[in-house]
Structures are given as structure tokens and as C-alpha cells.
């Protein structure tokens, strides 16, 4: 029987699985997605969401949770990676849970994301000025200082925090605490 002329999306997926070239070939690219999930404010709902990721073999790069202005609803911000198909599966599996109220993939929309980082670093007379210098470039804030260490607070997009930690690496970092990302759409819309 004759092969149809136009490939269906299903065939595109299969051709790719067989390693044959297909155009456009950007459908299977893995990318990072920031997903916001509104759930019932309970430990059970939170665990169920996280458990879904582990039970079905999806990645979680970062997860944060906190109550919203409505005390019965918690907002989870999840950063995950996957190709289009996997992300679609994640969104569907999340929506399917009884205690999830709203699931939104912010990736592709205009959104603000922030992360908080506390970094404790050991300083010497020689390094102190340089540490403070880096800190001021990144607009960090010294929140605690002893005669040996200082603790700085930095907030911003995750890349900024990554860059900051990288700059601090030559110095004697004692410990780093990162909050994980929170995110919100920029315009007047809400989820």
C-alpha cells in the first residue's frame, strides 16, 4: 500500500527514534521548564506531587513550596527538564492528581524568577576586600560577620547566583544554602 505523502507527527517521532533526519527537528530538544502548581495546602498534596516525579522517572532540578494569600492553597514552583513530549506528560500527570488545583508551564511566557542564596565564606585580611568587592558587584548583602567568616545574602535569577558562587569559588566557601526558584508571570494575568 502506498506511503502517505505528508508525514504525521507520529511518524516524525518514529523517524527520529530510528535516527533518520526529519525537518523541522526541534521538537525533541530538551529544555528547562519552570512549572507552577497550585495545590491544596497539605503535606499530602506536596508529597504526592513530588512522588509523581520520582515514580514516573521525571527530573526535578528545583522545587519550592509556600502558602499563598489563600491559606488553603500552596504554590509549588518546579524546575524540570525534558523534551516537549516529556513536559506535556509532566503537565498532564500533575493535572490529573486530585489535589492539584492549577498547573501552568511558565516557560515560553514572560516571567520573573528569583532565588535566594546564603553563602558563608572564610576570609583573611588579604581576601576580605576582594570578597566584598565581588559581593557589591552582585549587589549582595552581608548579613553576618565574625572575625573569620562572613555570610552574604544574594537574590536574583538562578544564573546570577550560579555566577556569584563561581566567583566565590577561589575563596574559602564554608557553606551555601539556596532556596530554589520561585517564579511569576510578568503581566497582569494570574494563574
Amino acid at each position: 500500500m502506498a506511503e502517505p505523502l505528508v508525514l504525521t507527527p507520529q511518524q516524525i517521532i518514529r523517524k527520529k527514534a530510528a535516527g533518520e533526519p526529519v525537518e523541522p527537528d526541534d521538537q525533541e530538544l530538551t529544555s528547562q521548564h519552570t512549572i507552577v502548581v497550585l495545590v491544596e495546602n497539605s503535606i499530602g498534596a506536596f508529597i504526592r506531587v513530588v512522588n509523581m516525579f520520582s515514580a514516573r522517572g521525571f527530573n526535578i532540578e528545583s522545587v519550592t513550596v509556600g502558602v499563598t494569600d489563600d491559606p488553603t492553597i500552596s504554590r509549588m514552583n518546579i524546575v524540570t527538564t525534558g523534551n516537549e513530549r516529556i513536559i506535556a506528560q509532566i503537565l498532564r500527570q500533575l493535572s490529573r492528581l486530585v489535589e492539584t488545583i492549577e498547573v501552568t508551564d511558565l516557560t515560553g511566557t514572560d516571567f520573573v524568577e528569583r532565588e535566594l542564596c546564603l553563602l558563608k565564606v572564610r576570609y583573611t585580611g588579604r581576601s576580605r576586600a576582594e570578597i566584598l568587592d565581588i559581593n557589591s558587584i552582585f549587589q549582595g548583602k552581608v548579613v553576618d560577620i565574625t572575625c573569620e567568616t562572613m555570610t552574604v545574602e544574594l537574590r536574583g535569577p538562578s544564573q546570577k547566583i550560579n555566577a556569584f558562587i563561581k566567583m566565590m569559588q577561589p575563596h574559602n566557601i564554608v557553606e551555601v544554602a539556596r532556596s530554589g526558584r520561585v517564579a511569576m508571570q510578568r503581566d497582569h494575568t494570574s494563574i
Binding site: P9, Q10, I13, R85, A88, Q89, R92, Q93, R96
Partner: peptide
Amino acid sequence: IDQSCISKNVFAD
């Protein structure tokens, strides 16, 4: 009826 079954294994046109 279950959205998570859609396009899980085979793409649905």
C-alpha cells in the same frame, strides 16, 4: 477520559 494517557506512548493527531 484520562489526559495523561494522551500522546504518552503514541502521538494522537
